[in-house]
Design a protein around this nucleic acid. Structure first.
Lengths: 118, 118
DNA sequence: ATAATATATGAACAGTTGTTCATATATTAT
DNA sequence: ATAATATATGAACAACTGTTCATATATTAT
């Protein structure tokens, strides 16, 4: 018989489920990376930047203008998005254009919208 | 011609794109809710709880045991998950069982995993 | 070279978040 | 009623986050 925590001994679900849950749990590094990824989506400014980039690649100061925020604030957030590999950038002269890195961004945001709208 | 911010006047993308981006931007409340939702996914403890619930509904103290955390910490986080409507609960005597609210959780986490693993 | 423009970045500060601790509530058994 | 068990919750504190401000870097034009 399973030796559980001090609490809820008699009401505990079957030990098989517990060991199964332990098996299917991704390793610590993956869980950390996953949480880090979602943290990036967890900010209004960054979500708005991503939405803006749904339409087209865009330079830093246009994003700043669109969102009515300072160039610095946008630049800081673009760095976060870039580190998470959600956006990429290309330089054209003095201007740096940012664009969505791949389609996961759309899918994840789309699923999120589905959830809050239901 | 478009009157842009002081910066990058001559390099700015076409004004049509700017107004298009403005149109397709969800309203503030939606953007806020969306960011709030992703914030909930943006924590290792909560991600681990959700993973545990992939297998089966589970009571608070079993989750606490599985994740090696205090009952209080888990309970606090379950409240956050519940407020975000990612989990639901049912009471059976003294025990409260938590379970995933719907399939968006799996999809969102799955897409997140796809992204970090690619 | 210097000036102008676009972007990036470090430090600081306020606001937020997650855990711990103590305690409250809810249910069951006696 | 009281005791025991499972869960919930408020306060406090440390750690983290996003913006602002000042300034640095990069590119282009003169």
């Amino acid at each position: 018989m399973r030796k559980a925590a001090e609490c809820c001994d008699e009401y505990a679900v079957h030990p098989d489920i517990l060991s199964l849950a332990r098996q299917d749990m991704p390793d610590e590094e993956r869980l950390y990376d996953l949480a880090e990824l979602f943290k990036v989506f967890g900010d209004t400014t960054r979500i708005r930047i991503l939405y803006v980039l749904f339409e087209s690649e865009m330079c830093v100061c246009d994003i700043a203008e669109l969102l009515n925020m300072t160039q610095s604030a946008i630049s800081h957030q673009l760095r976060v998005l870039k580190q998470a590999r959600l956006v990429r950038s290309r330089r054209d002269g003095k201007t740096v254009y940012y664009f969505l890195a791949d389609d996961h961004v759309r899918t994840i945001i789309g699923q999120g919208m589905d959830h809050i709208e239901e």
